[in-house]
Design a protein around this nucleic acid. Structure first.
Lengths: 140, 140
DNA sequence: AATCTTAATGCGAATTATTTGCATTATTAA
DNA sequence: TTAATAATGCAAATAATTCGCATTAAGATT
């Protein structure tokens, strides 16, 4: 059973290994590292793999996955809501305002600066978002 | 006529000085510097000042103002869409995940780092968003 | 394995936020 | 002052997401 690892992931998050959840994990696992995908793409890819699941269930599933930390949800200007697998290290994004391509970047210096900001205000940092809207090399 | 300055702002942006636009500018001018407001707040504040304008027109007006650079629109997690007057210097935001309070911060070092990121990818920076979700001092 | 309990699913309706078409009205240009 | 153009109100349309609830599936219990 190829699903064993998905079942383990779900159980580790107190989620029953059901057909919808396993199917969503399965299509997600076919994406390249760093792929950003929509609810609709998951829906379509499930159809392509011969599995029809309701859009409502996919919304619910991705919300559960987000709560569990299995995926991260982003809202980008003029692109809307996309998700990505929460594997790999922390990072921020660039989005090309022309072609819409999303890339990731990481610079540890940002983290230190952010820590300074919150400590100056005596708060505690829970999470952050940073997106650079660019014209990418190809579009220039 | 107290509106003269608003009329000037609108004309400078090739927008006819109409009642809706002038009324929106007027309620906005009553807000403290750095206030973040919703469409609904504008609507309510117009009502309070004895002016009833359609929600649709307020949406249209704020979109025009955004295109003209008169306001900036933000989308914050679990808060939604808010606007602020585009006066004063560039800045990013902290949002308290408990009380929802929005504050501004500015550190020039962020700008240099962002420039590094886009120059490394040979792109051009158009704009950026950065939001730190925190527990603020009061909520801790 | 049969049954009980609880959670997940599908479906369509409901919600929320926003946009749009169009007839009417206001603003600017002639 | 009239002609041309743009803005407004209103209601309907759209888009994205959530929800209620009856049905089904999964895990626990006997």
């Amino acid at each position: 059973m190829i699903d064993l690892v998905y079942i383990a992931i779900l159980k580790a998050n107190r989620l029953r290994p059901t057909t919808v959840r396993l199917a969503v994990l399965s299509v997600m696992s076919d994406y390249e590292e760093g792929t950003h995908f929509t609810i609709e793409k998951i829906f379509d890819d499930l159809i392509s793999s011969g599995v029809r699941k309701s859009v409502g269930s996919i919304y619910r599933t991705l919300k559960e996955f987000e709560d569990s930390g299995i995926v991260i949800r982003h809202q980008f200007d003029s692109i809307g809501t996309v998700y990505e697998s929460n594997t790999g290290p922390d990072h921020d994004h660039t989005v090309c305002v022309v072609c819409g391509k999303i890339k990731e970047f990481y610079k540890p210096e940002f983290d230190s600066l952010r820590k300074e900001v919150v400590s100056e205000s005596k708060g505690r940092l829970i999470k952050h978002t940073q997106t650079l809207y660019v014209m990418c090399e190809d579009c220039l």
